[in-house]
Write a protein that binds this DNA or RNA. Structure first.
Lengths: 213, 213
DNA sequence: CGCACGATTGATTAGGGTCAATAATGGTGG
DNA sequence: CCACCATTATTGACCCTAATCAATCGTGCG
């Protein structure tokens, strides 16, 4: 399935809102963001895409993309053309189920982001985002000890948490000052994840949505 | 498919965060909300469920619900047990595709809610919510002329837009004062939908995600 | 009639935004 | 190796949107 290997540099749009979906991409390495913009330039990152996840299965049955996908780091991905993807799905029921399942988990993540943006304070939002990143990177082996690389700019983090860059910066300092995180040289270290989860009002269950049976 | 007809009064939880999903419900009439809460009581409605939509297909393949579903009005729905639903899906490919498609559209709505909560002002948020309600109720015949019933409390609207009740109330007044909406006796009237969409920075495309082909 | 819940208003406060400047960082070409 | 430039990160001052607190007013209902 890993034919069609492709690379992209950091800061590129892989696909934009309004584009038709003619292929499905599976990310092999790198971080991407799904984002939407308003006419006047306000921008919201609505989710991250990490290695092992698909880019566009999310709009596969729909006419066009409702959001854009940008690389936040250099990225390697595998591209599967629509026709081939469709025949894969048709020939393998469990594969189709796996993709549906990925969509459902993503939906759950999206809901958690809604309460993050709507009801958590700045500090809680950033703490929560870091907890989520840890929990999502761990199963794909991208957490070493209690650290991971944090390759994105503060602007990206601000757009993901619905904050201004200035306030995001101050919130990071607060998290550092309280010892909840260490962040230097593009490396995020969380020495006490459960303390950070407490600060984030992290719900223990939303990512543990392993498939039934 | 419409066996197992059920009724529920307003203000009931049909299913709660953490519950296993043993059946799938299809709403025939009434409004419901998907919501999540934080330990300290803060509450965010993450989406509405309208007639014609399913309740729990969203967590069907997952172990347990990541959110709760509450009725905001009296509701009539049809309930299909898990085993029966699975056999329906297995026997009819296009049905399975339809459910996947519903999940994808819901995902797109969820993303729009993220930018609503993260980047729109209070006025834009409320205006946007009303536009979305109109566009979602129209295809199921629940818009009469330029009006629909608005059966929910201001508290619900506040929880859906991430605002306090007080500020939501003031925002409604502002929308009324500018003539963008009329809201009395549980009836919402939008005389100029495109004007309201302008005020909401409404993206024209996110709900027009009709299926391909 | 009294009660509970929902809507509305006023006063005050606080969490974050905005603007503007400055300091690091990192990549590039000579 | 270094000067230069463009991002990115950080800081300070000030402002504004929306939250909070606390009444008050309706209104449907048993």
């Amino acid at each position: 399935m890993l034919e069609g290997m492709q690379r992209a540099g950091a800061g590129e749009d892989l696909i934009s809102e309004g584009d038709p979906v003619d292929s499905v991409r599976i990310v092999l390495s790198g971080w991407l963001s799904r984002y939407k913009t308003l006419e006047d330039g306000r921008r919201q990152i609505v989710n991250f895409v990490f290695p092992g996840e698909t880019c566009d299965a999310h709009a596969f049955l729909l006419s066009v993309m409702d959001h854009s996908i940008a690389t936040m780091t250099p990225v390697v991905y595998s591209e599967i053309k629509r026709a081939r993807f469709e025949s894969l799905l048709a020939s393998d029921r469990s594969l189709a189920e796996a993709f549906w399942c990925e969509t459902l988990v993503n939906n759950a993540i999206q809901r958690e982001w809604a309460i993050n943006l709507g009801r958590r304070t700045a500090l809680e939002r950033v703490a929560h985002l870091f907890c989520e990143i840890f929990e999502r990177l761990r199963p794909v082996g991208l957490i070493e000890g209690n650290s991971c690389i944090m390759p994105v700019t503060q602007m990206d983090l601000a757009d993901a948490t619905g904050l201004s860059v200035v306030h995001l910066n101050r919130t990071l300092q607060e998290l550092r000052a309280t010892g909840l995180i260490a962040l230097r040289e593009r490396t995020l270290t969380i020495s006490d994840l459960s303390a950070l989860k407490d600060a984030a009002l992290y719900s223990p269950s939303y990512l543990q949505l392993y498939r039934r049976g």
